[in-house]
Protein backbone atom coordinates (compact mmCIF):
# COMPACT_ATOMS: atom_id res chain seq x y z
CA UNK A 1 0.00 0.00 0.00
CA UNK A 2 2.54 2.57 1.16
CA UNK A 3 4.86 1.54 -1.62
CA UNK A 4 2.20 2.09 -4.14
CA UNK A 5 1.29 5.47 -2.68
CA UNK A 6 4.88 6.67 -2.78
CA UNK A 7 5.17 5.63 -6.37
CA UNK A 8 2.15 7.68 -7.43
CA UNK A 9 3.48 10.74 -5.63
CA UNK A 10 6.80 10.35 -7.39
CA UNK A 11 5.02 9.88 -10.63
CA UNK A 12 3.01 13.00 -10.07
CA UNK A 13 6.11 14.92 -9.20
CA UNK A 14 7.75 13.76 -12.40
CA UNK A 15 4.84 14.84 -14.56
CA UNK A 16 4.61 18.27 -12.94
CA UNK A 17 8.34 18.62 -13.33
CA UNK A 18 8.27 17.85 -17.03
CA UNK A 19 5.24 20.02 -17.78
CA UNK A 20 6.97 22.85 -15.95
CA UNK A 21 10.15 22.43 -17.94
CA UNK A 22 8.06 22.20 -21.06
CA UNK A 23 6.38 25.51 -20.24
CA UNK A 24 9.70 27.14 -19.52
CA UNK A 25 11.04 25.73 -22.75
CA UNK A 26 8.10 27.06 -24.76
CA UNK A 27 8.33 30.45 -23.06
CA UNK A 28 11.97 30.41 -24.15
CA UNK A 29 10.87 29.68 -27.71
CA UNK A 30 8.63 32.78 -27.67
CA UNK A 31 11.50 34.89 -26.41
CA UNK A 32 13.98 33.43 -28.87
CA UNK A 33 11.60 34.21 -31.72
CA UNK A 34 11.27 37.88 -30.71
CA UNK A 35 14.32 39.17 -32.62
CA UNK A 36 13.39 37.08 -35.67
CA UNK A 37 9.94 38.64 -35.55
CA UNK A 38 11.31 42.17 -35.50
CA UNK A 39 13.58 41.36 -38.45
CA UNK A 40 10.83 39.62 -40.42
CA UNK A 41 8.32 42.44 -39.83
CA UNK A 42 10.94 44.95 -40.93
CA UNK A 43 11.67 43.02 -44.09
CA UNK A 44 7.95 42.58 -44.73
CA UNK A 45 7.39 46.35 -44.62
CA UNK A 46 10.32 46.97 -46.91
CA UNK A 47 9.34 44.33 -49.44
CA UNK A 48 5.68 45.30 -49.36
CA UNK A 49 6.86 48.71 -50.53
CA UNK A 50 8.83 47.04 -53.31
CA UNK A 51 12.35 47.19 -51.90
CA UNK A 52 14.28 44.02 -51.03
CA UNK A 53 16.62 44.70 -48.14
CA UNK A 54 19.07 41.87 -48.61
CA UNK A 55 21.55 43.33 -46.13
CA UNK A 56 19.58 41.90 -43.22
CA UNK A 57 22.10 39.27 -42.09
CA UNK A 58 24.97 41.75 -41.70
CA UNK A 59 22.64 44.47 -40.52
CA UNK A 60 21.54 42.35 -37.56
CA UNK A 61 25.14 41.48 -36.66
CA UNK A 62 26.31 45.09 -36.82
CA UNK A 63 23.38 46.38 -34.81
CA UNK A 64 23.82 43.57 -32.26
CA UNK A 65 27.43 44.58 -31.76
CA UNK A 66 26.71 48.32 -31.92
CA UNK A 67 23.75 48.09 -29.56
CA UNK A 68 25.80 46.09 -27.08
CA UNK A 69 28.76 48.47 -27.28
CA UNK A 70 26.55 51.52 -26.72
CA UNK A 71 24.69 49.93 -23.82
CA UNK A 72 28.00 48.83 -22.27
CA UNK A 73 29.57 52.27 -22.49
CA UNK A 74 26.57 54.36 -21.52
CA UNK A 75 24.95 51.88 -19.17
CA UNK A 76 21.67 52.62 -20.86
CA UNK A 77 19.71 49.78 -22.40
CA UNK A 78 17.42 52.27 -24.11
CA UNK A 79 20.37 53.88 -25.90
CA UNK A 80 21.57 50.42 -26.87
CA UNK A 81 18.29 49.61 -28.55
CA UNK A 82 18.12 53.02 -30.21
CA UNK A 83 21.63 52.52 -31.54
CA UNK A 84 20.60 49.17 -33.01
CA UNK A 85 17.56 50.70 -34.69
CA UNK A 86 19.70 53.58 -35.95
CA UNK A 87 22.27 51.27 -37.50
CA UNK A 88 19.56 49.23 -39.21
CA UNK A 89 17.91 52.39 -40.52
CA UNK A 90 21.23 53.69 -41.81
CA UNK A 91 22.01 50.50 -43.73
CA UNK A 92 18.47 50.57 -45.14
CA UNK A 93 19.01 54.18 -46.19
CA UNK A 94 21.98 53.04 -48.29
CA UNK A 95 19.82 50.35 -49.87
CA UNK A 96 17.03 52.86 -50.52
CA UNK A 97 19.31 55.53 -51.95
CA UNK A 98 21.15 53.19 -54.28
CA UNK A 99 18.02 51.46 -55.52
CA UNK A 100 15.40 54.21 -55.53
CA UNK A 101 17.52 57.23 -56.41
CA UNK A 102 20.49 55.70 -58.21
CA UNK A 103 18.38 52.87 -59.65
CA UNK A 104 21.00 50.21 -58.98
CA UNK A 105 20.17 46.56 -58.48
CA UNK A 106 18.69 46.04 -55.03
CA UNK A 107 19.97 42.50 -54.91
CA UNK A 108 23.57 43.38 -55.73
CA UNK A 109 23.73 46.33 -53.36
CA UNK A 110 21.97 44.45 -50.58
CA UNK A 111 24.26 41.46 -50.90
CA UNK A 112 27.42 43.54 -50.80
CA UNK A 113 26.06 45.40 -47.78
CA UNK A 114 25.28 42.10 -46.06
CA UNK A 115 28.92 41.05 -46.37
CA UNK A 116 30.32 44.46 -45.53
CA UNK A 117 28.28 45.04 -42.39
CA UNK A 118 29.02 41.51 -41.18
CA UNK A 119 32.79 42.00 -41.45
CA UNK A 120 32.46 45.45 -39.97
CA UNK A 121 30.63 43.99 -36.96
CA UNK A 122 33.39 41.46 -36.29
CA UNK A 123 36.15 43.98 -36.82
CA UNK A 124 34.70 46.89 -34.85
CA UNK A 125 33.42 44.55 -32.16
CA UNK A 126 36.87 43.42 -31.02
CA UNK A 127 37.20 45.86 -28.10
CA UNK A 128 33.89 44.82 -26.51
CA UNK A 129 34.21 41.13 -27.29
CA UNK A 130 33.52 38.81 -24.38
CA UNK A 131 32.90 41.62 -21.90
CA UNK A 132 30.08 41.23 -19.42
CA UNK A 133 27.43 43.81 -20.17
CA UNK A 134 23.97 44.94 -19.23
CA UNK A 135 21.03 42.74 -19.91
CA UNK A 136 17.32 43.28 -20.28
CA UNK A 137 15.51 41.92 -17.21
CA UNK A 138 12.33 39.95 -17.44
CA UNK A 139 9.22 41.88 -16.56
CA UNK A 140 6.48 39.63 -15.17
CA UNK A 141 3.17 41.38 -15.66
CA UNK A 142 1.41 41.73 -12.31
CA UNK A 143 -1.69 39.56 -12.12
CA UNK A 144 -1.46 38.07 -15.57
CA UNK A 145 1.75 36.23 -14.79
CA UNK A 146 -0.09 34.33 -12.04
CA UNK A 147 -2.45 32.69 -14.54
CA UNK A 148 -1.97 28.96 -14.85
CA UNK A 149 -0.11 27.89 -18.03
CA UNK A 150 -0.58 31.22 -19.84
CA UNK A 151 1.16 33.14 -17.04
CA UNK A 152 4.56 31.48 -17.28
CA UNK A 153 4.21 31.09 -21.04
CA UNK A 154 3.25 34.61 -22.09
CA UNK A 155 3.51 37.01 -19.17
CA UNK A 156 6.92 36.39 -17.61
CA UNK A 157 8.81 37.70 -20.62
CA UNK A 158 10.95 40.78 -21.10
CA UNK A 159 9.78 44.03 -22.61
CA UNK A 160 11.02 43.35 -26.15
CA UNK A 161 9.19 40.01 -26.26
CA UNK A 162 5.96 41.75 -25.27
CA UNK A 163 6.64 44.30 -27.96
CA UNK A 164 7.18 41.50 -30.49
CA UNK A 165 3.65 40.21 -29.74
CA UNK A 166 2.29 43.69 -30.18
CA UNK A 167 4.29 44.28 -33.36
CA UNK A 168 2.77 41.26 -35.11
CA UNK A 169 -0.71 42.53 -34.49
CA UNK A 170 0.08 46.16 -35.30
CA UNK A 171 1.86 45.29 -38.52
CA UNK A 172 -0.99 43.12 -39.65
CA UNK A 173 -3.64 45.69 -38.77
CA UNK A 174 -1.67 48.45 -40.44
CA UNK A 175 -1.09 46.64 -43.72
CA UNK A 176 -4.54 45.18 -44.15
CA UNK A 177 -6.86 47.48 -42.27
CA UNK A 178 -5.65 51.04 -42.65
CA UNK A 179 -5.67 53.37 -45.61
CA UNK A 180 -1.90 54.01 -45.63
CA UNK A 181 -1.43 50.24 -45.31
CA UNK A 182 -3.48 49.64 -48.44
CA UNK A 183 -1.40 52.24 -50.21
CA UNK A 184 1.73 50.45 -48.98
CA UNK A 185 0.47 47.29 -50.66
CA UNK A 186 -0.28 49.38 -53.72
CA UNK A 187 3.18 50.87 -54.17
CA UNK A 188 4.74 47.42 -54.02
CA UNK A 189 2.16 45.91 -56.31
CA UNK A 190 1.67 48.49 -59.02
CA UNK A 191 3.42 51.77 -58.37
CA UNK A 192 1.89 53.42 -61.41
CA UNK A 193 -1.60 52.73 -60.09
CA UNK A 194 -0.60 54.04 -56.67
CA UNK A 195 0.82 57.15 -58.31
CA UNK A 196 -2.42 58.02 -60.11
CA UNK A 197 -4.14 57.63 -56.74
CA UNK A 198 -1.96 60.38 -55.35
CA UNK A 199 0.85 58.43 -53.69
CA UNK A 200 4.36 59.83 -53.75
CA UNK A 201 5.75 56.42 -54.57
CA UNK A 202 9.46 56.99 -54.12
CA UNK A 203 9.11 58.99 -50.93
CA UNK A 204 6.93 56.26 -49.43
CA UNK A 205 9.42 53.64 -50.52
CA UNK A 206 12.17 55.52 -48.70
CA UNK A 207 10.00 55.76 -45.63
CA UNK A 208 9.08 52.09 -45.43
CA UNK A 209 12.56 50.86 -46.29
CA UNK A 210 14.04 52.94 -43.49
CA UNK A 211 11.27 52.01 -41.08
CA UNK A 212 11.81 48.35 -41.98
CA UNK A 213 15.55 48.81 -41.54
CA UNK A 214 15.03 50.21 -38.04
CA UNK A 215 12.93 47.18 -37.09
CA UNK A 216 15.57 44.86 -38.54
CA UNK A 217 18.16 46.82 -36.60
CA UNK A 218 16.24 46.26 -33.35
CA UNK A 219 16.69 42.51 -33.80
CA UNK A 220 20.42 42.95 -33.15
CA UNK A 221 20.29 44.38 -29.61
CA UNK A 222 17.42 42.03 -28.75
CA UNK A 223 20.00 39.31 -29.22
CA UNK A 224 22.99 41.02 -27.66
CA UNK A 225 21.11 42.56 -24.74
CA UNK A 226 18.65 39.77 -24.08
CA UNK A 227 18.31 36.48 -25.95
CA UNK A 228 22.03 35.78 -26.34
CA UNK A 229 23.36 38.54 -24.12
CA UNK A 230 26.85 39.79 -24.83
CA UNK A 231 29.05 40.06 -27.90
CA UNK A 232 31.26 37.10 -28.65
CA UNK A 233 32.41 37.94 -32.16
CA UNK A 234 32.26 35.13 -34.68
CA UNK A 235 31.05 32.65 -32.08
CA UNK A 236 28.04 34.78 -31.15
CA UNK A 237 25.94 32.32 -33.14
CA UNK A 238 24.01 35.06 -34.91
CA UNK A 239 25.48 34.65 -38.35
CA UNK A 240 22.83 33.20 -40.65
CA UNK A 241 19.82 34.45 -38.71
CA UNK A 242 19.26 37.21 -41.26
CA UNK A 243 19.08 34.75 -44.12
CA UNK A 244 16.62 32.64 -42.19
CA UNK A 245 14.55 35.74 -41.51
CA UNK A 246 14.57 36.44 -45.24
CA UNK A 247 13.20 32.99 -45.99
CA UNK A 248 10.59 33.38 -43.25
CA UNK A 249 9.45 36.61 -44.89
CA UNK A 250 8.82 34.67 -48.07
CA UNK A 251 7.23 31.77 -46.21
CA UNK A 252 5.01 34.32 -44.52
CA UNK A 253 3.72 35.46 -47.89
CA UNK A 254 4.38 39.07 -46.83
CA UNK A 255 1.64 38.68 -44.23
CA UNK A 256 2.70 39.50 -40.64
CA UNK A 257 0.59 36.79 -39.00
CA UNK A 258 1.83 34.04 -41.27
CA UNK A 259 5.37 35.33 -41.02
CA UNK A 260 5.13 35.27 -37.23
CA UNK A 261 3.99 31.65 -37.38
CA UNK A 262 7.05 30.94 -39.47
CA UNK A 263 9.30 32.63 -36.93
CA UNK A 264 7.79 30.62 -34.08
CA UNK A 265 8.06 27.43 -36.09
CA UNK A 266 11.73 28.10 -36.66
CA UNK A 267 12.41 28.88 -33.00
CA UNK A 268 10.47 25.79 -31.98
CA UNK A 269 12.47 23.56 -34.33
CA UNK A 270 15.71 24.98 -32.99
CA UNK A 271 14.64 24.35 -29.42
CA UNK A 272 13.48 20.82 -30.24
CA UNK A 273 16.89 20.20 -31.75
CA UNK A 274 18.43 20.91 -28.39
CA UNK A 275 15.70 19.37 -26.26
CA UNK A 276 15.58 16.11 -28.17
CA UNK A 277 19.29 15.51 -27.96
CA UNK A 278 19.24 13.65 -24.63
CA UNK A 279 16.15 11.69 -25.68
CA UNK A 280 17.48 10.58 -29.05
CA UNK A 281 21.12 9.82 -28.38
CA UNK A 282 21.38 7.82 -31.59
CA UNK A 283 21.17 10.92 -33.75
CA UNK A 284 24.27 13.08 -33.90
CA UNK A 285 23.77 16.47 -32.28
CA UNK A 286 24.74 18.30 -35.47
CA UNK A 287 21.88 16.75 -37.42
CA UNK A 288 19.29 18.03 -34.97
CA UNK A 289 20.86 21.46 -34.86
CA UNK A 290 20.95 21.80 -38.62
CA UNK A 291 17.54 20.23 -39.19
CA UNK A 292 15.58 23.51 -39.05
CA UNK A 293 17.40 24.85 -42.10
CA UNK A 294 16.43 22.16 -44.63
CA UNK A 295 12.97 22.19 -43.09
CA UNK A 296 12.72 25.91 -43.90
CA UNK A 297 13.71 25.12 -47.48
CA UNK A 298 10.98 22.53 -47.64
CA UNK A 299 8.35 24.98 -46.45
CA UNK A 300 9.57 27.50 -49.01
CA UNK A 301 9.07 24.87 -51.66
CA UNK A 302 5.52 24.28 -50.47
CA UNK A 303 4.73 27.96 -50.82
CA UNK A 304 5.42 27.95 -54.54
CA UNK A 305 4.57 24.39 -55.44
CA UNK A 306 0.91 25.07 -56.19
CA UNK A 307 1.75 26.92 -59.39
CA UNK A 308 3.78 24.20 -61.06
CA UNK A 309 2.36 22.15 -63.87
CA UNK A 310 3.20 18.71 -62.54
CA UNK A 311 1.34 19.44 -59.33
CA UNK A 312 -1.68 20.50 -61.35
CA UNK A 313 -1.50 17.27 -63.29
CA UNK A 314 -1.10 15.22 -60.14
CA UNK A 315 -4.12 17.01 -58.67
CA UNK A 316 -6.19 16.31 -61.75
CA UNK A 317 -5.52 12.60 -61.31
CA UNK A 318 -6.74 12.58 -57.70
CA UNK A 319 -10.26 11.62 -56.73
CA UNK A 320 -12.61 14.57 -56.31
CA UNK A 321 -12.64 14.83 -52.51
CA UNK A 322 -8.91 14.50 -51.94
CA UNK A 323 -8.28 16.93 -54.74
CA UNK A 324 -10.47 19.60 -53.19
CA UNK A 325 -8.64 19.21 -49.91
CA UNK A 326 -5.21 19.26 -51.51
CA UNK A 327 -6.14 22.32 -53.57
CA UNK A 328 -7.35 24.09 -50.48
CA UNK A 329 -4.13 23.38 -48.62
CA UNK A 330 -1.98 24.45 -51.53
CA UNK A 331 -3.96 27.62 -51.99
CA UNK A 332 -3.65 28.44 -48.32
CA UNK A 333 0.09 27.89 -48.49
CA UNK A 334 0.58 29.81 -51.67
CA UNK A 335 2.08 33.26 -51.59
CA UNK A 336 2.73 35.73 -54.35
CA UNK A 337 5.39 38.38 -53.86
CA UNK A 338 4.48 42.04 -54.42
CA UNK A 339 4.49 42.33 -58.20
CA UNK A 340 6.80 45.36 -58.31
CA UNK A 341 9.33 43.91 -55.86
CA UNK A 342 12.85 44.90 -56.85
CA UNK A 343 11.80 47.31 -59.59
CA UNK A 344 12.22 51.05 -59.86
CA UNK A 345 9.50 53.59 -60.49
CA UNK A 346 9.50 56.66 -62.65
CA UNK A 347 6.40 58.78 -62.94
CA UNK A 348 6.75 59.92 -66.49
Amino acid sequence: MTDNCQLTTANRQLTTMTSETLLIGLAGVLAAAAPVIFAVMGETFSERAGVINLSMNGSILLSAMGGFAVALNTGSLLLGFLAGAGIGALVALVVAFSSITLKQSQVAVGFVLALLTRDLAYFLGNPVMGQPGPRLQSLPLPGLSQLPVLGPLLFKQDLMTYLSFLLIFLAWAFIFRTRPGLMLQGIGERPAAAFVRGANVNRLRYFYTILGGALIGLAGPIYSLSVKAGWKGTISGLDGIGWIALSITIFGGWNPIRAALGAYLFALLQWLGLALQPILPGIPAQVLQVAPFPLMILTLLLVNIGDSEWVERALAAMPERQRRLAEKILRALRAKPPAALGTTFDSE
Binding site: Q185, G186, R190, A193, V196
Partner: peptide
Amino acid sequence: DPLDFPPM
Protein backbone atom coordinates in the same frame (compact mmCIF):
# COMPACT_ATOMS: atom_id res chain seq x y z
CA ASP B 1 -4.37 48.45 -69.18
CA PRO B 2 -6.50 49.60 -66.25
CA LEU B 3 -4.28 50.93 -63.46
CA ASP B 4 -5.56 48.78 -60.62
CA PHE B 5 -4.15 46.33 -58.09
CA PRO B 6 -4.85 42.77 -59.26
CA PRO B 7 -4.29 40.90 -55.98
CA MET B 8 -6.57 43.20 -54.00
